[in-house]
Design a protein around this nucleic acid. Structure first.
Lengths: 221, 221, 221, 221
DNA sequence: AATGAATGAGTCTTCATTCAT
DNA sequence: GATGAATGAAGACTCATTCAT
């Protein structure tokens, strides 16, 4: 029974700048990436504000500062925009997660780092977080694909840490790594959802230690 | 970064009977409750299959065995159908949860029971589970209302168990009951989502013990 | 270029009682006339308030204190209600007009009486006036029929007075009685429309003398 | 008791060309004004034929030679089409009326010219006349606005002529200019309505002199 | 005669997508 | 590549009318 703390239009609208996006330094390194990225960024903002199905392609275009038709030079259709936006952001997140884990091999520390990164990454971009928490699952086909590929890599990352911890004797055996991954991810995910839906903008990252603690304590040998 | 294991159109479509609903014994011939409930049941099926925004009111009507216009004798509009379906199912769930908790006062046992009920209740009705996991959050205003009322009661239930466990010395103090409730709910929720999105229909309830164990172990004094 | 002074929803709504109709003493002389007349009266009120096309049969039924289906025991369809309501009211008006003209044979006096009756009859029942001024013409077929029969009798009444006045030498010859009838009726009609559309409820009958004077002066030999 | 001479579906349908409109020289290739005007023209034809409420937007689109959706690039909704069509035609009429009055300052002559213009303008475009005579008053709010603005200017024009005639001694004093304006307008309006509703297409303009004469005679000092 | 729940045909409007410029 | 006017398919909802009771 998923669903979270309240969200209201106002807070959402407030946090989402209505001005044209310029999240990325407009170095314009290629004629492609410029508009392509502006469209993706605009899409995140618009979808975070209205939800995927109630977002208008024309509003994304307007926010990106391009003509409606231009969208279709870069994306096959509306769904592809959502797909690309989420995949691109998530790929970057995965890259950072892997990088983060390299500097230590202690499973406990690794889970802590993952929890911190999970919360801080989304915390840093509330519109993006809103899209991840609420819009990711709307297209069954897309979600199937995403879960089977991108998201699975994240789960595998977690499960491997757990397994190594169990092998090292840090974590007690007998707990399925799959279930632990679900718990770990689910707990963090729930924290983010609550935060996304809440009115007041409390610091999300602070919860990382507490959440990781609950899970890790439950794992300790 | 919410999103779960795969789901694909085919498996979903397969699991959802396309025949007219008859979940409830049709003895009830009182015209109202009869059609009202048939519409709600049909709505759950159709929405589970297509998602709220891609569900057609006419399909709900057809599946409920009534004319399109009849829908509007019982519901103000499409959104009200979703709202009513979810609220009605969740209210029933809450009733059962409270009943379940009455027969014991041991916090550990109570959390176990809650976990089992959570998973078995949704496990028993996959279309309903699909709606809870994916469609609950589409209307910001609706979700706000739902989170503020129905769902909050569930969270309060969990938090109170945790607090009583801490007072009794069963659970270690120093962990916010709110965060624990988020972890507990989030972990279960993630289990359900994975299950809803998965192809093969594995027994969901079996995971209850494991999930509760992880969280409870993390809480033990 | 027909159209008149302003009308606003509020004034209309205000002047039209929303309570059930009981314009006629409910002697209930026949089982028929009771509900039949109540439906007609309710129809006038509702149509005056919303206009024919925006009136709901169910509202007429409610205002008449009968069930929706009952309407169709007395009238073939919605249009027949309008037709019957207008015809019935106009027939009564014609009867009174003829009666009024009997007591004098002076054309000038007759025109004055007609003007007075025209304005006072409608003035006494603003909802009815509203229907006459605005709703009479919506069904081409109905209007055709009405103009060819009921209304034509009124025009004939006027034309005959004019012709007799010309024969008697009171009115100058050389003016087409048809055109005079149009002027006479058009002038009165315009007075009523202005009044119906106006906010403040000024006394309409007072204008009868003035209007008749203008036309009659234009006719004097 | 408004309503006029007969009109029947057949005669109406006959007089209204079903072919695509091309009232305006199509030199104007500026996409906007071109389609905008074509839609307005088509709307007049369709509304004249069926009445506003029974006109289909899709028929207007078809008659204008555009797609249904194109209508909404130029007009907010169906009602706006009617509003724009009437306002635009009436504004042009007012412009011509004012121009017509400039070339003489004799009140008698001015009223004659106004009568002639009123009848010839509508006589020249029977569908437009039909719309003016029958559809103008359907939306209370619209009519209120129209009467308060456009139509009021026409009445003011008439009233000023009457007042100047009275000051000049041409017209007898003691007759309210407002009532005279009502008589003048009402008489002309009635002529047009009769003509619009009649089967045979008699010359309307010929009546101008007669009508003006009746009213003017009634005014003479 | 009376009821009112049920019907289902009918239409305005939206908006993703295309394509001539 | 870029534009944005134009397209037209699609669907929620209304309401006159019916008919079993």
């Amino acid at each position: 029974m998923r669903s979270k703390a309240p969200i209201d239009e106002k807070s959402r609208a407030a946090e989402v700048s209505k001005r044209r996006v310029s999240l990325h330094s407009s170095k314009n390194n290629s004629r492609h990436s410029d508009k392509y990225q502006r469209i993706l960024d605009a899409a995140i903002l618009v979808i975070a504000e209205h939800g995927y199905f109630q977002s208008r392609v024309s509003e994304i275009a307007e926010r990106a500062g391009v003509a409606d038709g231009t969208i279709y030079l870069y994306f096959k259709n509306k769904e592809e925009i959502l797909r690309a936006a989420i995949t691109s952001a998530f790929t970057e997140f995965l890259r950072r997660a892997r990088h983060e884990l390299e500097s230590t091999s202690d499973p406990v520390e690794q889970l802590h780092r993952l929890a911190r990164l999970h919360l801080s990454a989304l915390s840093a971009n509330k519109p993006l977080a809103a899209v991840f928490q609420t819009e990711l699952r709307h297209s069954a086909k897309f979600l199937a694909e995403f879960s089977r590929t991108e998201l699975k890599q994240y789960f595998d990352l977690i499960r491997e840490i757990v397994r190594r911890g169990q092998q090292a004797g840090t974590f007690r055996p007998g707990v399925s790594d799959k279930i632990v991954a679900n718990c770990f991810f689910g707990a963090l995910d729930e924290m983010v959802t609550s935060w996304v839906l809440s009115d007041h903008d409390y610091p999300l990252e602070g919860a990382a230690v507490a959440v990781a603690d609950v899970i890790i304590s439950g794992l300790k040998a």
